[in-house]
Every structure is written in structure tokens, then in C-alpha cells.
Design a binder for these strands. Structure first.
Lengths: 221, 221
DNA sequence: ATGTCAAATAATATCGATATTTTTGGAGAT
DNA sequence: ATCTCCAAAAATATCGATATTATTTGACAT
């Protein structure tokens, strides 16, 4: 019938659409951690069949955003301080590796991409919050993607997403004070453009640890 | 009807069964890299419906053993020397982190587990090859699992599996000369039991780089 | 009151069939 | 011969329905 309405614009398959919608809802906390994800409920919520929903949940399972319980269906992955700290640890490790590799491969095209992404992020930070999230991720991934290491990039992207959840849970969204953040981003950008791997990784990791400590403290409450 | 025949023994769901069978076939090369994976073909091969097959393929997609092509179905993930080298790089990085964390948490129970796993692996190396693969992975994961870092362990397990494929492709299976390997395993075990993190990681990484170089040389042919 | 068991209910997992899309194969034009 | 385009075939993606499994409810016995 209407596998793809085209009223919205650009959704390829129902499965992919469901995947993106569900992912978004889990990341933002609209589907809170630990919540049971009933097929029928999601089916009607997303206006689609059971098959695309199940397939989307299977994909999200391997992204560690959804857990499958033997014969008892799915639920949004739970959160814990322990989990948060592991994410932080792995991000520091993997992103350092990726950033150093990126800088080692530095060329003009990459620098252009970085500058552009940074500009878009800055612009988006003045507009709506939703745009900013995407632009922020795009900037961070642009820092790493010149490493030309697809597996590593995939892990970094996954961990980035897992981390977003905690930001949404702690604050109301991307409202963790932006003034410091902007300066930190600038330091990372400048160091990357200078091909100064030590400085860039130091600033990047400081950036993570700082917001990490902030979020960690919020979680004790 | 017969969602679970129980003639074999212990398969929980059709999806999980299909997942395991397909994973095995891709790891061993029975389904060679790049091969188109047609639903109907797999459906009859595994004696199950289209839904479990699709779900299993979705899960394998996120394990990076299967690729989904927009509206053109699935195929076994391709291989390349580049991909192999990235796997090696990431394994060295992540397993070092995990092994050091494991040793930092060392206790008697862990040491017992290590000794047992090593013993089982040694015993299996004298028997059938299939047993050995499982025991070998169990030993390597036992080295790491005292880190108590589930995300990290998951990545290590994934990368281990991705690496297995290259072993099966290069040799006929686990036939890469076992004498050196046994000694290398012993060095790692002893260092771990001594809580000597530097020595253990050195031996572990040497172990990987050595077989890595061997496989890498095989791939040029 | 409380615990246990069975029937009723609800939800999952799976199947069979259909609609949609991609690929194939061949006829006609250049 | 080669290319383009259209119809036929194949394969995918999705739907609706069913069988299976888990959960709840309430009656009964202790």
C-alpha cells in the first residue's frame, strides 16, 4: 500500500525509517531507559507493520540502545553510572587513536571539512537545539574521519550516541553551558588545523572528561 | 507448528538459531565474503521463515559480518587487506586496555578460570578443530573479562570474530602451526597469573602481530 | 490472609501471501 | 554491432493473520 508515503520527503524503507525514529526517541529519552518496547504499541506509534519494527529493534540491539530479552521482547537499554563511565573511558581511548590517525593523514580537503563543520555547529548553536545536536556530532566525527579507519569510526559513532543519552537524561538536552564548550571546540579545531596531535588530543580528552565529570555528578542525585 | 523441533536439543528461537547458523557459515567461509545472501535461499537452507532470516541478518549487519544494501538485500561482508589491518590495530589497542584492567582486578577466582580455560584449550587442540576454535576464544576472552567492562568486551569479541574469518580464508581453518602458538599462550597465561601487566600485554600483542604478519603475507598471493 | 494452580489474557515470534522494487532479457532503433 | 527502452521475471520489503509463549487474574485450598 503505502510503504513510503513521500509526504515527508526522503524515507527509503519502512525499516530504516522505524530505525531512525526509534533511535531518536531512545537517545532523547522519549523512550526512557529500561522501558518495555511493545511491538504493537510501536507499530501503531510509527504507523507501520510489525516486521519493520522488529527489524529496527534488532538493529538497535546491536547498537546497544535496545536489549532483547530471550522470549520476552525488547526494552530500551538501561543506564547506570558504571555504564556511563565505561563509555567515557572507551571514548577517550578510541577517539585519541582516531584523532591522531586523522592528523597523520591531514590534508587541505580535511581541513576545509573541519572548518566548515565547525562553522555549521557554531551557527546551529544559535538556532534550535535539534540542529545543534546533529552539527555537534558532525564536527566531532569530522575530526576523526580522516583516520580512514571505518571500524574505529563506527565504534566512535556508537559511543557518541550512547553518550548523548546521558546528556539528555542529566540536562534537558543540549543545555549544558555553551560558553565553555565553544572555547573548547575552538582549541580542538585550532590544534587539529596546526596538525598538533598532542595538543588536539589533550583538548579533546579534557573536553570529554570535563562534561563527563559534570554528568557524573548529576547522576549521583 | 514447529517453531522449535527439539530434535536437536536446545535452540530457543528460530531467529537466534538462524543467527548462530549464519554467523558460523560466514566465519568459516562457507558463505564467502561478498556473496549475495538471498532470503529465499537461506530460508530453505535453514528450514525457517523469512522473518527469522531477516532478523538474523539484521543482527549480523550490526556485527559487521553482513552488509545491507539499501533496497537490494544483504550480502556477506567483503574482506580486504586494509580491513584486516584495521582489525589487527584495534584488537591490539582494545585488548591491551582490557587485559590491563583485568589484571588490575585480579583475584583467585579469575586465575582459576584462566587456568581452566587454558587447560581446556590445550586439550581441545589435540582433538577436533571445531572444539579448538571455541576453546581458543574462551581462553582469550577469559583473559579480558575480569576487566568488568562489558562494552569493551563486546568490541573485543566482535573483533575476534571478524579476525577468525581471515584465518579461515588464509588457511583451511585453525591449522596455523600450533607449536609456536602453544608456547605463546603459555607466556601470556604465566604473565597474567603473575599479575605482570607489561609482560602479559607484550606477549599478547606479539601473539597477534605474529599471526597478523603471517596472514597478511598470505593475502598478497 | 496467603500461596498455588489453572484458565483467561496479552504479547511475542513466526508464517504465508502480497505489493514494491530491482534485475534480467530481448525487441527495435541508430 | 551497440544502445535504449520496455516488458517479464526475480527478489525484496512489508503486511495481516496465526501459533506460541509469557503474564495476569481469580478461584480454591491451606
Amino acid at each position: 500500500m503505502d510503504a513510503m508515503l513521500d509526504t515527508e520527503g526522503k524515507e527509503t524503507s519502512a525499516t530504516h525509517g522505524a530505525y531512525r525514529r526509534l533511535r531518536e526517541m531512545i537517545l532523547t529519552g522519549e523512550l526512557p531507559p529500561g522501558q518495555k518496547l511493545k511491538i504493537e504499541q510501536l507499530r501503531s506509534l510509527l504507523n507501520t507493520g510489525a516486521s519493520p519494527v522488529r527489524e529496527a529493534l534488532s538493529l538497535l540491539t546491536s547498537d546497544m540502545l535496545v536489549e532483547r530479552m530471550d522470549q520476552r521482547g525488547f526494552r530500551a537499554a538501561p543506564v547506570s553510572k558504571c555504564n556511563f563511565e565505561e563509555i567515557l573511558l572507551l571514548r577517550c581511548n578510541l577517539e585519541e587513536t582516531a584523532l591522531r590517525a586523522s592528523i597523520a593523514n591531514a590534508d587541505a580537503a580535511w581541513e576545509d571539512r573541519l572548518v566548515l563543520r565547525h562553522h555549521h555547529m557554531k551557527k546551529a548553536s544559535q538556532n534550535g537545539a535539534h540542529d545543534f545536536e546533529d552539527a555537534h556530532k558532525a564536527f566531532h566525527m569530522a575530526l576523526l574521519d580522516n583516520s580512514k579507519l571505518p571500524l574505529l569510526l563506527r565504534y566512535c559513532s556508537q559511543l557518541y550516541d550512547l553518550n548523548i543519552r546521558y546528556r539528555y537524561l542529566a540536562a534537558g538536552g543540549s543545555s549544558y553551558k555553551k560558553r565553555d564548550i565553544a572555547a573548547e571546540h575552538h582549541h580542538i579545531l585550532d590544534a587539529a588545523l596546526d596538525h598538533d596531535a598532542d595538543s588536539a588530543t589533550k583538548h579533546l580528552i579534557d573536553h570529554y572528561r570535563r562534561t563527563g565529570e559534570y554528568l557524573s555528578s548529576q547522576m549521583d542525585t
